[in-house]
């Protein structure tokens, strides 16, 4: 299967960068990343520098891989880049591969971006303050199955950043909404829910992400199907916290 790849090459953060064309002939059974591995092997054999891209578990759970493929995060089907296979493309197709684009996700090299902004948002309040050893028995506080399931749906976020990449405003609200929701839903998370919402949103804004305009692109592209309900809950939690908390 012959393809033309147009891949973003950028030597380092301050380099201008450009799209470079590569013609490849590949086995259609390959995964998308295996195709890039294959290209990299060939580049290395020719003495050209391989293309840098992030990836790790290659089973769709670690959230490391993040390519903007033919105008969409993670490509044409709803999955992570590592789970995308070449049989979803056709002979002779030209594929544009770019890094996530957002001020808060600066390019490090080629297709690799820095997503540490997500970590800093979590550090701002994405936790329940419980020291090791001080927990009560696990069954002491029952949580209705429906609530636990809903919390799980939010907690399933893999922090890949596709939501930011897809959003026309580079907004991180789906990510932040999921982080806030998973704690706000369960009884253990209630004690800190106000301060958590206030601090995480403040950090999200400080990182320079855009604001949500409810286009739904984030959720539509999310490989783990985090729903827009998380953003509604984020709004509710934040506004409620701001109106009722003691933090002046």
């Amino acid at each position: 299967m012959k393809l033309t790849l147009k891949i973003w090459r950028q030597k380092h953060a301050n380099d201008k960068g450009k799209l470079v064309d590569y013609n490849v002939d590949i086995n259609p059974e390959m995964s998308f990343l295996e195709m890039l591995d294959d290209l990299n092997e060939k580049l290395a054999e020719r003495g050209e520098e391989p293309i840098a891209f992030d990836h790790d578990c290659r089973e769709g759970i670690c959230g490391t891989c993040n390519l903007y493929i033919n105008g969409r995060p993670h490509g044409p089907i709803r999955t992570t880049t590592c789970q995308l296979h070449m049989r979803h493309f056709h002979e002779g197709e030209s594929i544009v591969i770019e890094p996530w684009r957002a001020r808060s996700f600066p390019v490090v090299k080629d297709l690799i971006v820095d997503r540490s902004a997500f970590d800093r948002i979590v550090q701002a309040g994405g936790y329940i303050s419980v020291n090791t050893g001080s927990a009560p028995d696990a069954n002491e506080i029952p949580i209705p199955k429906q609530i636990a399931d809903e919390a799980f749906n939010s907690a399933a976020c893999i922090a890949c950043g596709a939501c930011v990449a897809a959003c026309k405003n580079a907004s991180a609200m789906l990510f932040v909404g999921a982080q806030i929701s998973k704690f706000a839903l369960v009884p253990q998370g209630k004690a800190e829910k106000k301060i958590r919402a206030e601090k995480m949103v403040a950090q999200m804004d400080a990182e320079g992400f855009g604001a949500c305009t409810n286009t739904g692109a984030c959720s539509a592209e999310c490989p783990v199907e985090i729903s827009m309900t998380n953003i509604a809950r984020l709004n509710r939690e934040y506004i409620g916290a701001k109106l009722t908390s003691d933090n002046v």
């Binding site: 419980v130 050893g133 696990a138 029952p142 209705p144 199955k145 369960v186």
Partner: peptide
């Protein structure tokens, strides 16, 4: 046994029965 307690306190959404227990 302590691990499960700790994780639940951290908000880990383990599977639950309809009655709300693990």
């Amino acid at each position: 046994v302590n691990i499960i307690d700790q994780c639940v306190a951290q908000g880990v959404p383990f599977a639950r029965e309809y009655g709300g227990l693990l």
